[in-house]
């Protein structure tokens, strides 16, 4: 399995909240929510983000509401999130939805908007291909990586259906 993700960096500061990714009033519909995704923090993100792009953020990314905000990011093609720290519920949700999240101190200071990012989901090794800077993310929780490697929680459940006596 190819675990390397490459894309253009979108750089954000601290405390970007989940409602600003998937706003109330969009019926939590990813296509609808995508039209205002992150506009409070960067007005060009929702129009200019391209499949493969990577979010690089500061502390507490995705905090606040427990809504599955990463479904919007997945819909827009965001291939990974690198941040100094992530909101706990967002972190769990996002790996389960199938988008990897890595935590690495001061990571958003290593990138400028538009720099080329490379991250290896298997090792947590991060590189700024534009400047040559490198960083090593903290190891993620193994059971989340396993779910991600199967395509997310739903597909992971389907690889182990015999574990649930509630399923046919």
């Amino acid at each position: 399995m190819d675990t390397v993700r490459k894309g253009k960096a979108w750089v954000f500061g601290d405390n970007v909240n989940s409602e600003s990714i998937m706003a109330t009033g969009t019926d939590f519909n990813p296509a609808l929510a995508a039209q205002s995704c992150l506009m409070f923090y960067d007005e060009t993100f929702h129009t200019d983000v391209k499949p493969g792009d990577i979010i690089v953020a500061g502390r507490n990314f995705g905090n606040s509401s427990s809504r599955p905000a990463a479904k919007v990011l997945k819909y827009l093609g965001v291939s990974a999130i690198l941040c100094e720290s992530a909101g706990r519920i967002f972190y769990r949700n996002t790996w389960n939805i199938g988008v990897p999240v890595f935590e690495c101190p001061k990571i958003n200071t290593l990138f400028k908007k538009g720099d080329q990012v490379e991250v290896d989901v298997a090792t947590g090794k991060i590189r700024n291909l534009t400047t040559g800077a490198e960083a090593q993310a903290a190891p993620p929780i193994p059971l989340l990586v396993e779910r991600w490697s199967k395509g997310g929680m739903i597909d992971w459940i389907n690889t182990r259906r015999d574990q649930y006596d509630t399923l046919e």
Partner: peptide, 17 residues
């Protein structure tokens, strides 16, 4: 505590990590 996206799985097995 909150879990959100993983709730469908909790409801199938009665366990949470």
């Amino acid at each position: 505590t909150a879990m959100s996206y993983e709730i469908p799985e909790v409801l199938l097995c009665g366990k949470a990590w």
